[in-house]
Design a protein around this nucleic acid. Structure first.
Lengths: 336, 336
DNA sequence: AAGATAGGCTTAATCGATTAAATTGCAACA
DNA sequence: TGTTGCAATTTAATCGATTAAGCCTATCTT
């Protein structure tokens, strides 16, 4: 029942383990291995059902061929989809993915980083949580390759792949204004992370450029851990304070779900009474009674780029920074 | 920049690596390590920022503390949610999760198993694809611990954790009949896997027991890879052949989405014209204009059980089989 | 006082690979 | 014939841990 090792093959064939290693790694040329014996070794390896022990390989080579993926929550469709694109792309580079969910908590993030470092991942793809700056700096100090996704820290020079949040947001809100909406509210996360701040900034600038009053404090922030509870409360307060709100811009997929649910429950009609634009796509939109306009992030591209950059970092080809802003598209679905 | 090893600590303190190992693994008692030196070692380890090399550990102990998770598609909410519960549960057992998506293809599944075996995972949690019986048998022959989830092979005696699909389905369709639906169609996957077959069987038995004709061939099967395209076609044919269909039972989350989309597009009113029950929950239901009744699988329980069983298998405590059927609940949402 | 016991620590083999360096055998060349 | 050169293969160190076994020294027993 024991797995067969290179040693077993060597013994079966009657050669040294070195030869077997050379052959099975296709280093016959460099190592000047004889043609016949190489073939014999190959046949025997197949016959015994040899499977290389990647752990042993890793220990010797210092490469685990594994990348650590840290997201806020793998069960969130946004991250689940990203994970899938990363999985597929990583496979092309012969990497395997270990994942972990930080729940947007810095301590969990640190814990995950430690665990993954102990497992000798060759690099990280991280959607960093608020307050994880030091963790990221520490990775940098240790010269451990990584790429940030979805968010980044403007104060730290790192590789990252993020959506152009400002532009996406700006475009979305301009669209609402173009629909003759006069009082556009935004529901965001309570977070100091750039991605949210940029979405808010895009919103505010779009209001200004549309000639709308941006001083009304129509941006409400919700804590990550209590979306379902808080969204309703916050939107209720907002509508009571400003009964003439005629549009909402939701800053994430979870916020959109909560927000739309609230609007449904309270019988607001979309788009007649209230117009809506959502950040992120959701298959749920297809079931909504009205066509919904949303910001579509290019997940496939993000995943591909992140893996590409990471792979280059790991192979040491790329000492310089790679900071990628991908453009998201506003998918307009309203009937005109 | 090199990571600090046990050797570095040993040198810094002036002892052998053995001592350091004993201390850092809390084996001081068994190994009779002196109190003072133990403390010195511990302090120095912290001071140097020592992080154990799990790879080296694994090589020596033969345990990678890693479990391989193979699902159809990590971006499918059902599997993404399961993955999350497995992640959390695995952490409690000090395991880390490597995942892979098989896309319901046996060759990809085999490929994933190989890759994960090379990485010396201690065990697998697998949602097996159609045609992967031999792969499962092979794992058994190699005495590699694993647990199947979501589906299993009746002809192979393995551990598994699955929903009681027959019962869930039966209950769902009985519910529809109880709503005075006379012609209930089912949309399923084209698959020989038990989970689907059991859902179909539950549907048929429910029809019979409700005094409804189950000979009408109202079950339509869709291929996994072309859901979006085929669901519409198939439902169209069905409605043309049987214009008096007054209910649909959808056999999975993706089928539900496609089916509901079709019903929406063709202006069927739910539940007035057509009643619907969906297998699996989806947050999308919250955005649907009508309350939807669905079968809720206890994902948390499934994940927990799967990890528990796997952990027991790995530790060798549990030679006997563990076959768990969890009950899913019919969440009735229609207004009465 | 001699032998036994226990405490404290080191030695060294091992896990399964990789790979630089050494070795062997043989043919070709001067 | 003796030397060189090259092809083919082996040797052995190494990666970073674990752990059984061994070796002192000091203390306890009788």
């Amino acid at each position: 029942m024991k797995r067969v090792s290179i040693k077993d093959i060597a013994q079966a064939v009657g050669v040294s383990t070195a030869l077997v290693s050379y052959v099975l790694n296709n280093k016959e040329k460099e190592a000047r291995v004889g043609q016949k014996i190489a073939e014999v070794i190959r046949v025997k390896a197949r016959e015994l059902g040899y499977q290389p022990n990647q752990i042993a390989k890793s220990l010797k080579t210092g490469r685990s061929q594994t990348i650590g993926l840290i997201v806020a929550d793998i069960s969130n469709p946004f991250f689940a989809n990203i994970a899938r694109t990363i999985e597929d792309e990583a496979k092309k580079y012969n990497y395997t993915v270990i994942f972990g969910s930080s729940d947007e908590a810095a301590d969990k993030s640190q814990n995950l980083i430690n665990i993954l470092l102990e497992r000798q991942v060759d690099g990280f793809i991280i959607a960093p949580t608020e307050g994880s700056e030091e963790q990221i700096r520490s990775l940098q100090d240790q010269r451990i390759p990584f790429v940030l996704i979805d968010r980044y820290f403007p104060d730290i020079q790192t590789n990252f792949v993020v959506t152009n949040n400002y532009q996406a947001s700006y475009q979305a809100v301009r669209h609402l204004a173009g629909q003759h909406r006069k009082k556009i509210a935004m529901i965001a996360y309570k977070s100091e992370l750039v991605h949210m701040k940029e979405r808010e900034r895009g919103y505010l600038d779009a209001l200004k450029d549309s000639g709308l009053d941006s001083d009304l404090n129509l941006v409400k922030e919700i804590s990550y851990n209590f979306i379902q509870r808080e969204v309703g409360e916050v939107m209720g307060q907002l509508m009571r304070g400003h009964p003439d709100i005629d549009a909402f811009f939701f800053g994430s997929n979870a916020l959109s779900m909560g927000g739309l649910r609230y609007l449904n429950r309270n019988n607001y009609r979309i788009p007649e009474t209230i117009s809506v634009v959502c950040f992120d796509e959701s298959e749920a939109f297809d079931l909504f009674y009205a066509p919904l306009t949303f910001v579509n992030q290019p997940l496939l591209e993000m995943g591909k780029e992140a893996v590409r950059i990471l792979a280059e970092q790991i192979s040491g080809k790329q000492p310089q920074l790679d900071q990628v802003f991908v453009d998201s598209a506003l998918i307009v679905r309203e009937k005109h």
